[in-house]
Design a binder for these strands. Structure first.
Ligand SMILES: [Mn+2]
Ligand SMILES: [Mn+2]
Ligand SMILES: [Mn+2]
Ligand SMILES: [Mn+2]
Lengths: 218, 218
DNA sequence: ACCGTTTATTAGCCATGCCTAATCTTTTTT
DNA sequence: AAAAAAGATTAGGCATGGCTAATAAACGGT
């Protein structure tokens, strides 16, 4: 059995490996709001348990076993977020912290039953895919809104960074998963972007925001 | 914020105080599957936090603050059990361990929403009352089936000891919360009891079982 | 009233997970 | 190429929550 801290470290490594092919001590520490030295200690322990491969000074990767655990945690996290939003009526900006705790409840039967109860959802409230019980994730071809060009018409597929501030900002602009936007103009100066929703007036999104929106062709 | 271990100790003290007016180190240790010396350490810590009153060698009681916390934990535990049985379809003999973990998820909003989602249940799947958000428990006048006499007609109100074995035994006899029984005969020799359900043939219950059934007049 | 048994506490140890400060290594800048 | 900066690891310490063994207190039976 893994401790909560071990689980959180594995999940952090997994998350960082989505963007780069090695995860670094400093970034793990930042994600977990802890210190680099603590992370080094934990990486050593996880390496002994054969859950990560740690090349000191050169970063860390997950073993197959470690990745399977990470996927299970991601599954639990996103499943609980879905429950909280779809069943209990939480806002999508309110669920992250609670799911961060619930994901550590250890019971395979619980997650299987929850999965059925929720109707085997494929995506969480932030548009992120929910791995199935074998860890399989449905592949999608998405890109960041910030990489789109003038004239592109796109649908918001997911919000990649789960900070409540960003989610509330999207709420205030009426944006949600599934919203369709056309890119009117991209400003070279600050990377901001003018977009127009299907119905309603165009408005501007900062690069900070567009960078965190995953979109697919509409 | 309390740790999981602190919470479990407070809950154990609360549970023991239901039967006696002081809780003892040995019994707390037994309930938590830990050692008496570990309990002593924890009681000292909880006493410093003003959650218990500990008279060394003479047992421990809860302060008002401690009791409020215990009631909140009991509320969470029973609420999650209700969710697991009523919504996810778990058997009443399968939920204790999982609820033991879920009760430590700290979020008042979560429990309030869950309460509403479940329709403000007053009792958990074992017939135990669920404290309301202020810690109020609906009082009932119940007694152990083992104290009943020949001729008494009673309704099963709660199963006081939550061990899966007992629950499965009750399942096998077709007994559940709300079942009505009449006491046919009490055998002095072993304290066993012949009971007859509303419909069906009479059968015998050992004292071990009747001791753990809380009943009310039918 | 005493003695043995039960129960509780204390003393001392250990693993875990965190920290700061000191010491590498690697990378970047000059 | 050397110096500086950034990043990582190691060394050493601390709080938590366990444990066993030793000791102390309370209780029950004679
Ligand atoms: Mn977590
Ligand atoms: Mn999410
Ligand atoms: Mn618990
Ligand atoms: Mn219960």
């Amino acid at each position: 059995m893994l401790t909560r801290s071990e689980e959180d470290h594995i999940k952090a490594v997994y998350a960082l490996l989505q963007d780069n092919d090695s995860a670094f001590t400093k970034d793990i520490a930042e994600r977990l709001r802890t210190k680099a030295s603590s992370v080094t200690d934990m990486l050593k322990k996880l390496a002994e348990k054969k859950l990560v491969k740690h090349e000191p000074y050169y970063g860390v990767k997950l073993t197959a076993k470690g990745e399977a655990i990470a996927l299970q945690l991601v599954r639990r996290h996103r499943m609980w977020e879905t429950f909280l939003v779809n069943r209990l009526g939480f806002g999508w900006d309110e669920v992250h912290e609670v799911a961060e705790q619930m994901e550590h409840v250890a019971s395979d039967k619980l997650i299987d039953k929850l999965d059925a109860y929720l109707g085997h959802p494929s995506f969480d409230p932030h548009g992120d895919p929910i791995p199935d019980k074998h860890g399989k994730i449905r592949a999608r071809k998405t890109k960041r809104l910030s990489t789109c060009m003038q004239g592109d018409s796109v649908r918001i597929a997911a919000v990649s960074e789960t900070t409540d501030g960003l989610l509330r900002l999207l709420d205030s602009k009426g944006l949600r998963i599934g919203s369709v936007l056309s890119v009117q103009e991209v400003h070279a100066f600050d990377g901001s972007m003018d977009v127009k929703p299907k119905s309603g007036a165009a408005f501007s999104l900062s690069k900070d925001v567009s960078h965190h929106l995953q979109v697919e062709a509409a």
